[in-house]
């Protein structure tokens, strides 16, 4: 798995490529933790090239949702592949997490109220 970060104003765009499983989730955890420690609480997650996610990968994002919300921030995912989206749907997280189809839509959600 590879993680690419790009600062965009007061938000951070994180592009994930490859498979996010119990092995690679540690790297994603470190990436998000570092972002929050820098005081950035608006995160866009580009999932276009994320080909697989297990519960360990989902757990990393889930564990930061409350802290980010408490800082008036948000995590918005976009361009999810069907298999990745289905994992969130099975868990019922598609109703809790912010998920957009396009980057433009994701940015609108990120910056709304």
């Amino acid at each position: 798995m590879e993680i690419f970060k790009q600062k965009q104003g007061d938000s951070l765009l994180i592009s994930v490529e490859g498979e996010l499983d119990a092995s690679s989730s540690i790297d994603m955890d470190k990436a998000i933790e570092a972002t929050i420690n820098e005081g950035i609480y608006k995160l866009l997650i580009n999932c276009e090239k994320l080909s697989y996610i297990s519960s360990a990968g989902v757990g990393v994002f889930v564990s930061y949702v409350e802290d980010i919300k408490n800082k008036n921030g948000k995590i918005v995912f976009y361009k999810m592949q069907a298999n990745v989206l289905s994992v969130l749907q099975i868990l019922g997280l598609d109703k809790i997490l912010s998920i957009a189809e396009t980057e433009e839509e994701a940015k609108l959600i990120l910056n709304e109220g």
Partner: peptide, 9 residues
Amino acid sequence: VKDKQKGGM
């Protein structure tokens, strides 16, 4: 989500 759990899913 509320309990910030990484596991349990």
